[in-house]
């Protein structure tokens, strides 16, 4: 009967690299803790990378989702300001230019990850990536 009953769905969780103390390797090989990362670290790493480029993604809307603990964030992405909506856990951290880690529910992010976090707001410009050779 154990085999007959499917396992319970695992609760959605955040990737381990957002946990305070996680070691992140920059493109030049330098190691930093996730909580110590600065905007320049991402910009310089993208400059070194032969494949990846930094995109600016501006938060245009933040709505609650029908799925508990999730939010729907609408971004204007890149130079063409493509409209992209993503559904994420409310504690999912985005890196805001000049500000650092931010999420829809910073208290929950800090509680779960011990990662210092600010409130993500409409108008914040987040770091996202695109491919350098993307037409």
């Amino acid at each position: 009967s154990l085999l007959a009953t499917p396992p319970p769905p695992s609760a959605p969780s955040l990737p381990p690299y957002f946990t305070k103390g996680s070691i992140i390797q920059l493109a030049d090989g330098e190691l930093k803790r996730v909580e110590d990362l600065k905007t320049e670290d991402f910009i310089q790493s993208a400059e070194i990378s032969s494949e990846l480029k930094i995109d600016s993604s501006t938060v245009e809307r933040i709505d609650s989702s029908h799925t508990p603990h999730f939010a729907i964030i609408q971004f204007a992405v890149g130079e063409h300001r493509s409209q992209v909506s993503v559904e994420v856990l409310v504690e999912y951290p985005f890196f805001v230019f000049g500000q650092g880690w931010s999420s829809c529910c910073p208290d929950r992010t800090t509680q779960l990850l011990e990662l210092p976090c600010a409130k993500l707001s409409v108008g914040d410009v987040c770091i996202s990536l695109t491919l350098k050779n993307l037409k």
Partner: peptide, 25 residues
């Protein structure tokens, strides 16, 4: 006798999303 413990190292680009997709809506 402390056993050496391997510490995971994550690449910088795993931390930020790819949002520019062809399926932009």
């Amino acid at each position: 006798n402390v056993e050496p413990r391997s510490v995971p190292v994550f690449p910088w680009h795993s931390l930020v999303p790819f949002l520019e997709t062809s399926q932009s809506n």
